[in-house]
Nucleic acid binder design. Structure first.
Lengths: 221, 221
DNA sequence: GTTGACATAGTCCCTCCCGGACTATACAAC
DNA sequence: GTTGTATAGTCCGGGAGGGACTATGTCAAC
């Protein structure tokens, strides 16, 4: 069916999903990714400009040339075939969460810096959470005020929104806890005392999760 | 100083940090990444085999040829110059957490599947958390038993460990909540009622974070 | 004492993807 | 009329993914 070799990736379907909402220019798509999808499926701009072309090549989208003044622009819209492909993709199993966290590498190797360095790294993390909060505070408020985009999708937008919210809160609370913990340490990291209490709590909680997984398997699942 | 073009990435310093603990063969390094660093800095095996060579080219590591029987292997160890470079890198600012979560795309576009499809996606997420719990349950227990690796690093290993733990718990709780929420919906997703209560709670919590960010900025930070 | 499974120790290569530099027009403000 | 910002993209080098491939070592089972 498709003559080109490039197969569709989750990024393709993410774009296709947006096209199912309404037609967009690539520029608008890129902006839209910044507002929502980009928080859990971040992709480079250059990719976002390529994907719609791939969708067109597969017959999943249609490109129409429009213009603002004498300046051309390309509007993309989904086809019936594209909707069918999307409906097939959505229910399929997907990959679990993948995390990249450079600042945590610097915490992991804290012994190569001072206590003050470590506290600075942790404070950076807390700021990240605060900045995130600032960036996203308007969105739930807009829906409460009835001005949010695509309100008919709100029930499941709240599901994904709460995930991002919980993620952000978790980071913030972790950073606060870590700062408190490190502040109680002596200046010489090498003589810091491990937080045994936290370690015991983690062991217990992991055990609970692991037991649930084992029980699930035992139930012949 | 360096004649080759490839500059050092966080991946390079992650490996360099491991070399600072003790010498390893590349194979051991790859295994070690699976055990800890890989959870917040996942990298392909092929990359892990290239990085030590780059470190040697920069004078940050030294390669020595050993053998097991007649089978050769390369042991890498850090140099004094490498330790200095690492000590410079660790305290520098790093990037905040970046998340990729394909399953959440499928939740985001839930309108293209059924309620049952959505529940299946969410259950997958819960299983992911359970499997993670199963995989990591032994680590805190080992340290409690006094058999964990590099016990002198335990204080900050607990910091990073708790982060991963909190991440996992957050995912698990979110999935449970989402499943409960969706189960209360009618079979036709289009007539589901938004969870206004959760939306209000999110708005309030984000506001708190955002205010803290604003206050921080006002304090001339 | 041989077979097979699994761990060790890598190499190779094609493709995906990043991300920053670059170009250019439209429009509004000063 | 210039300056700034939003719109609408293209280009490209290098990082990174990930699977296929090769080969030896070790240990337990048969």
């Amino acid at each position: 069916m498709s003559t080109d070799h490039g197969e569709l990736t989750p990024t393709s379907y993410a774009i296709l999903g947006l096209l199912a909402l309404r037609p967009w220019t690539t520029y608008e798509l890129a902006k839209q990714m910044d507002r929502a999808l980009g928080y859990f499926w971040p992709r480079a701009r250059s990719k976002l400009y390529e994907e719609p072309k791939k969708l067109v090549a597969h017959g999943y989208a249609r490109a129409t040339s429009e213009s603002t003044g004498r300046r051309p622009r390309t509007m993309y819209s989904i086809t019936a075939k594209g909707r069918r492909a999307l409906a097939q993709w959505v229910p399929m199993p997907g990959s679990g969460p993948v995390l990249e966290f450079e600042q945590l590498i610097r915490v992991f190797f804290a012994e190569h810096g001072s206590k003050a360095d470590l506290l600075r790294s942790l404070d950076e993390v807390r700021r990240w959470a605060e900045d995130r909060g600032e960036a996203s505070v308007g969105i739930p408020e807009a829906y409460l005020a009835g001005t949010g985009a695509f309100p008919e999708r709100l029930p499941w937008l709240i599901l994904t929104g709460k995930f991002l919210h919980d993620f952000e809160q978790m980071i913030d609370r972790w950073a606060e806890w870590a700062i408190d913990t490190v502040e109680s340490w002596p200046d010489d990291l090498a003589s810091a005392e491990p937080d045994w209490q936290t370690l015991r709590e983690m062991a217990a909680a992991e055990r609970t999760l692991a037991d649930r997984a084992a029980a699930r398997r035992a139930e012949g699942d």
